[in-house]
């Protein structure tokens, strides 16, 4: 039984303040998106309760003909992209972290170079054009199929798997591929879950490349449709095609709260991922196998 600990209470309190600092501005955005457009000006920057209540902003967003399609596109890009990321990153990280082979050092230095050099947009665009990947999901998914930064992080995790386990497997006659799939991957679940989260969020939030490589609006991910409104100050895209949008109705809207609603819509699907990911961050994940 744990005893009351002063240190623990202080820690809990510090973290509580921290989450408060994060939460209040975010709740403010939520409150803004749910407020009655006519009363929005009453809401202060720290207010967390909506003034009045209206779902008009969400109705508008949801009646945009591209929104549902774009959510589907985003989910597709995120799932396929993340799976590919995980496979390529893990298999490459295993070879680089746990084996010796001829030329390894050069490969590592070249990888660092790949990480720090950012070629200009036009070079990448020409490459995609030559590969005939323009206007295809492949361009968006492939251009960062392995993030070198994450690759090195996964290598670090792989390196910390005790050598004794691998040696034991080797003695049993397991080859590299078998060790990788049967031992390395199961032992690295938290690391892979972390990476899945990182890659997943990255794909979900990807915006810039999607605007460049996906010109067909039917292929746009959610972020492109939403940011069109928030960033490029273009109200027409979001409101275009919304049934019964008259100038009068348009005029009663509050763009600030409409924007807030788009932010909420973009973030909510990410929250649905939380339980899935947090599962891997609980006690006992590492039980069995780690004991040296």
């Amino acid at each position: 039984m744990r005893q009351f600990s002063m240190t623990k209470t202080i820690i809990q309190f510090i973290l509580f303040l921290f989450t408060l600092a994060v939460l209040i501005p975010l709740l403010n955005i939520l409150a803004l998106s749910l407020s009655d457009p006519a009363r929005v000006s009453e809401l202060s920057g720290l207010g967390v309760l909506p003034k009045g209540f209206s779902l008009i902003n969400y109705e508008i967003i949801m009646s945009n003909p591209f929104i549902l399609k774009s959510i589907f596109n985003s989910v597709f890009i995120t799932i396929v992209g993340t799976l590919l990321n995980l496979f390529l990153t893990a298999i490459t990280a295993y070879v680089l972290a746990r084996t010796e082979f001829v030329g390894k050092r050069i490969v590592l230095v070249v990888l660092i170079a790949i990480m720090v050099f950012e070629p200009s947009m036009i070079t990448e665009y020409l490459l995609m054009k030559d590969l005939h990947l323009l206007n295809s999901y492949a361009a968006v998914i492939l251009y960062k199929a392995i993030n070198v930064y994450y690759l090195f992080i996964l290598m670090r995790f792989f390196q910390e798997v005790p050598t004794s386990i691998l040696e034991a497997a080797k003695i049993d006659g397991a080859g590299h591929f078998r060790i990788f799939t049967r031992i390395m991957l199961p032992l690295s679940k938290p690391a892979l879950a972390t990476l899945a989260l990182f890659y997943g969020v990255y794909h979900w939030n990807e915006y810039f490349r999607a605007t460049i490589y996906l010109s067909d609006p039917n292929k746009w991910p959610l972020q492109v449709v939403l940011r069109q409104f928030v960033v490029t100050q273009d109200n027409t895209t979001l409101l275009k095609g919304v049934e019964g949008m008259t100038p009068e109705l348009l005029a009663t809207l509050d763009f600030g709260s409409l924007q807030s609603a788009t932010i909420v819509v973009a973030v909510i699907p990410m929250l649905l991922l939380y339980p899935l990911i947090l599962k891997y961050f609980t006690k006992g994940t590492m039980d069995g196998g780690v004991k040296e």
Binding site: M121, Y125, L126, N135, T211, L214, S215, T237
Partner: peptide, 18 residues
């Protein structure tokens, strides 16, 4: 011609430069 969304000048440049 389909021009990607976002900053028009930037996207048009990519098209022309390619």
């Amino acid at each position: 011609v389909e021009i990607a969304q976002g900053d028009y000048a930037e996207k048009l440049n990519l098209l022309l430069y390619s």
